[in-house]
Design a protein around this nucleic acid. Structure first.
Lengths: 294, 294
DNA sequence: CGCGGAGTTGAAGCGTTTCAAACGGGGTGG
DNA sequence: CCACCCCGTTTGAAACGCTTCAACTCCGCG
């Protein structure tokens, strides 16, 4: 199932890293993939778009390279990686179905980061020069693109929220909750997750050492919140995970009991929290914790 | 020039927190403010836009609230803040001239974060329902908006880069370099910076405790890299700052000398670095370190 | 004048980083 | 086919650096 990460040139024979698919698709598929319902006549359904296949470990966008194409991810998963000045590989985000890729390069002309396939993927390509005309012809495409951009802007918030937590297990919990939320949105079980990426990539996204990610996994597993089997994990206690995730920094929300022997866990220590009274003065629910328990 | 930083309620009398300005502006001003040169006929110059004034500490966008307006920041500076589930106030970014605000709410319908003025500011408002027609009438406005969005997407990278550094002084250095880069882009001295925000806000953005920010400031100052005077700082050694900023995590780029007594500073320990030989194998310059020394 | 907030500095505790080693799987090559 | 090696993952141990709590100064304002 998994190809080797380095070496392994065998699929250079009959499996090209990126190639057009023989199947056909239309602009209507693009709009639907972006999570938008199309309400035009049948305009969009008549405009053909060629889907592309991206093999695992193949890179779609090259950091520093040019690209006159926007991509809409239809299936598979990708990672966006930027190599910092000191050589550190910073993972910016993982992309799933509906993601828009390549827009970051619009203002600078070059790709600020690389995009690599974590597993075989299918994408639709939109030529940048055609965008103005396309948007005028297809109002729902314009809407879909704008919505996708709006969604992507909220990733600043997600990234900051994940890396802002002091405790590494809180960061991991937030990451898992975000993933589970996504799974629920695409009508899949939010309890069973499969990673296409390694510990090192997760560590980079969370801003910790990869050993720490490993330790955090066993920590959450030992707490009975989830079951871990290498790259497959099962969430056992969604509420418990949320509790773990809800500790950004010191303050602890509820002041008063700062007894030295109480570890650093504020309300975390309680295994079950049926407490009906909500925290007041916080009307907003963060995106990472919006997932409803089933 | 500078308004008072805190307290100072005297403007509650005849200074409303947000009010329209008597001055007039046109869509051409909006496009120019977004950093785009307009090449339409004189269309844009004939479409009036009313500029709004936002007083210091007044909030433009309310987290969880509605807004049918996009804003383009003309002058002043803002901060974007999100209150997490645990009550922690996470600063997402600071906004300067040319920034587009309010687009994040497009897909969800509500603002995911608050936007507060760090100093008196002037903004142009664009009604969301008018956008489709505006974009068709003014191609250069569409371009300008898309470029602005493209720029904003790269903030994911900036945020991750800042919070990914292990050492807190590296995070601060990256923050300062980013600020200096911006100053240079708007043709102001990149050596003298004035903050409208407090240590607590910077700490939130960097993902550390506010005491740590204070300590990092004195650390960089003691190293002779900058001079600190409360909210005014002067950068003395740009190259030294870059060196400090270029340590994300362990690896240290150049292996070989892992002698235990050498602290955790790789090439950082050297007070002055006239070393002309650059690091090889790293062709890409990160956005945070792209600033040229003068 | 006194309060309160912002900023700085100190000291102690602890979690993460870092260096090491061991385990396991997967593919390679003998 | 099996040994071998590489790499991802896990676990251990020591040390550093950050967080946390606390005290203090400075400053503006009531």
């Amino acid at each position: 199932m998994n190809t080797v990460s380095s070496g392994h040139v065998s699929w250079a024979l009959n499996r090209t890293p990126v190639a057009p698919l023989s199947e056909t698709a239309t602009m209507a598929d693009v709009i639907r993939t972006l999570g938008h319902s199309l309400d035009d006549g049948s305009e969009a359904g008549l405009m053909p778009v060629t889907p592309w296949r991206l093999r695992e470990n193949a890179t779609l966008l090259h950091e520093g390279g040019l690209s006159q194409q926007l991509y809409v991810l239809s299936s598979g998963s990708l990672k966006c990686v930027k190599t910092l000045e000191d050589g550190y590989e910073q993972v910016l985000f993982f992309a799933h179905r509906g993601e828009l890729l390549g827009f970051e390069a619009l203002h600078s002309g070059t790709q600020p980061a690389s995009v690599v396939a974590l597993e075989d993927a299918v994408l639709f390509a939109l030529p940048v020069p055609d965008l103005p005309k396309l948007q005028e012809t297809l109002p729902s495409l314009r809407e879909a693109l704008h919505h996708a951009l709006s969604r992507q802007l909220s990733r600043v918030s997600e990234t900051a929220e994940m890396m802002a937590a002091v405790a590494s297990d809180a960061r991991l919990a937030r990451f898992l909750l975000g993933w589970a939320t996504h799974m629920a949105q695409v009508d899949q079980s939010p309890h069973r997750l499969h990673f296409g990426m390694g510990r090192r990539d997760i560590a980079s996204l969370l801003g910790v050492a990869h050993e720490t990610v490993s330790r955090s996994f066993t920590l959450l597993a030992d707490a009975g919140l989830l079951r871990v089997n290498n790259r497959d994990i099962e969430i056992l206690d969604l509420e418990g995970l949320k509790l773990r995730a809800a500790n950004t920094r010191g303050v602890c929300a509820g002041r008063g009991s700062s007894k030295p022997g109480a570890l650093n866990q504020c309300p975390v220590a309680t295994p079950f929290s049926p407490s009906p009274q909500k925290r007041q003065a916080v009307p907003w629910h963060g995106s990472l914790l919006a997932l409803q328990d089933s």
